[in-house]
Write a protein that binds this DNA or RNA. Structure first.
Length: 200
DNA sequence: CTGACGATTCACT
DNA sequence: GTGAATCGTCAGC
């Protein structure tokens, strides 16, 4: 399967990429354990004018520096001291756009994911929600800033096409501080897919 | 140096 | 439905 080319990540509109990532395959091969899943839920963070974005108003700190790099890499940070949240950095350097990957539909390595998640049974909570998804794929802040076009960490075109009418658009949650920007329909998912995280 | 807090999840009532 | 977990980040002093 074809790893997405650099050009895919340099598109100007982060919303376009947020939609295009639905149906793509996210793959990790950490600790020699192959795990992968189809992306079913994404969220756009639209740079310096988006109050929900860590880089709002050109905020530039050690943490946000990753988002200011050229697209095609990961931006991973620790949330609530527990959860490793993974984003896809897009656009050219100095344009801090990112797409949060919120949920996947498991493909390869489901046993490994189950073990990492410490679950007795596989159910829809295995990879649903950004913290859970990262845990299942073994993604941690240790991989922050890494290329998404490497052997061990990449996104491929799985030949799955999601028609526009199957794309559900909802407001982002958990960012009340973003005020009016919190209401924007930046949270995208595949309509009817059971692996999408529960809307709050 | 200090303290408040978070792009969440889970156990428990 | 409610609250705890848990620690890096960031603004302010």
């Amino acid at each position: 399967m074809a790893i997405l080319p650099l050009d895919f990540y340099l598109e100007q509109s982060v919303l376009t990429i947020t939609e295009a990532l639905l149906g793509k395959l996210l793959v990790t091969r950490f600790d020699n354990q192959l795990t992968s899943g189809l992306i079913v839920e994404t969220e756009a963070y639209n740079g310096v004018n988006d109050k929900g974005c860590h880089a709002y108003n050109h905020r530039r700190t050690a943490r946000t520096e990753t988002m200011y790099k050229r697209g095609g890499i990961s931006y991973i940070y620790l949330c609530y001291g527990i959860h490793h949240l993974m984003n896809v950095v897009t656009n050219e350097a100095d344009t801090p756009h990112a797409v949060l990957i919120r949920a996947i539909e498991p493909q390869e390595g489901q046993k490994t994911m189950q073990k990492r998640r410490n679950k007795k049974k596989i159910d829809y909570t295995l990879t649903s929600g950004p913290g859970s998804m990262s845990q299942a794929l073994g993604i941690t802040t240790a991989y922050n800033g890494n290329s998404l076009r490497s052997k061990t960490f990449h996104i491929c075109d799985a030949g799955v096409n999601i028609p526009a009418e199957q794309v559900l658009r909802r407001p982002r949650v958990g960012i009340a501080y973003a005020e009016e920007d919190a209401k924007r329909p930046y949270r995208l998912s595949i309509q009817g897919n059971p692996w999408v995280s529960k809307a709050k």
